[in-house]
Write a protein that binds this DNA or RNA. Structure first.
Lengths: 189, 189
DNA sequence: GTCTATAAAAAGATAGAC
DNA sequence: GTCTATCTTTTTATAGAC
């Protein structure tokens, strides 16, 4: 469409506002004001507030799904797979911290696409869990509770969006490397 | 006051709703319906919607501040202190998962108490950072980037509220112990 | 593509009866 | 302590002029 660029801009600005206050607390007037136009004018480019949220969340969720798919297709060992998952999260959170915020904190406000998002998320977590379990089975990973390991890793990776924008002096490769050491090898001397 | 018990109940139910949809998306009518009364009746017990959020967040933030204070007062080594911080988070998240959700995701909707909350949070993080740095200085903790270690630990601990309610078969002591092993000693064999 | 005007619904909160 | 009724403001979204 002709208005695709303007629409992309609206979605990007909306994601930024959603990160600051959350989807429900951001009004179409807030968004319009930031864009420098009136609220009614937004509707020439987007269908609804809800459609903006869908655009943001679904595109990132699919990006994670595709990333996991690539990782699974490779024949590397479990620790290699975990390192690739860490890099995947660092890359996506670096590129789109605002969108990651919406995915993490506003997914429950999805309407039509809620079940689709939940399916993608459950699949992702299940694949992650299997990688950890395989690592335990072949003695690459300590025999701790799988759910606690999964929770611990995912919590850190899912929070990257909060933290990456504040630490711009660390590049993606350095951050992924540092995270890999800390998450996998621990912090104890 | 005579209505203190009813007020406590309202705050508790509100925290539960806030966890599901966030502060902004929960209406006074939603809250009233869950309580089995009309919205207007709520105002006989609470001052405003905002005062409910304040009650939830400030009490937990002060609990963390007090817990950190106790930990600092002890003369244990850095790893001991980290383990006590882990237990502190497990205890509070187990006791009040709903309130932890509000503290983590709705603090930005605080009005009068926003700066007070931010001061407590900054203090907490600064104390946490100093414990990690001291551990690095005396060779208890690996010489990795302090900010990445702090971020990684805090991300996991702050997300406990999402996860604890789903895993009721793990008691607090077991969870704290398992988390301690994973976060401090890593998962690599 | 943006505007003004406005519709229709939903929000937080209060007044006063019971 | 809860109700009905209502006020005031705010919200998403549409219609139609420019």
């Amino acid at each position: 469409m002709k208005t695709e660029n303007r629409k992309t801009e609206i979605v990007r600005v909306a994601a930024h506002l959603f990160k600051e206050k959350g989807y429900s607390a951001v009004t179409m007037r807030d968004l319009a004001k930031t864009m420098g136009i009136k609220a009614a004018s937004l509707y020439n480019h987007i269908e609804s507030k809800q459609s903006i949220l869908q655009d943001i969340i679904v595109s990132i969720a699919e990006e994670f799904t595709q990333g996991m798919s690539s990782i699974l297709a490779e024949s590397s060992n479990s620790i290699d797979k975990l390192n690739k998952i860490i890099s995947l999260h660092v890359t996506i959170a670096s590129k789109n911290a605002d969108g990651m915020a919406a995915l993490n904190t506003d997914w429950m406000h999805l309407e039509d696409k809620l079940n689709y998002y939940l399916d993608l998320r459950n699949s992702y977590e299940e694949n992650f869990r299997k990688i950890i379990q395989a690592g335990i089975d072949n003695n690459e990973i300590k025999n701790e509770n799988v759910e606690v390991i999964l929770f611990s890793l995912l919590s850190t990776l899912r929070s990257l969006y909060l933290w990456i924008p504040k630490k711009e002096n660390l590049n993606e490769a350095q951050l992924a490397s540092s995270l890999s050491h800390i998450l996998i090898k621990g912090i104890n001397t």
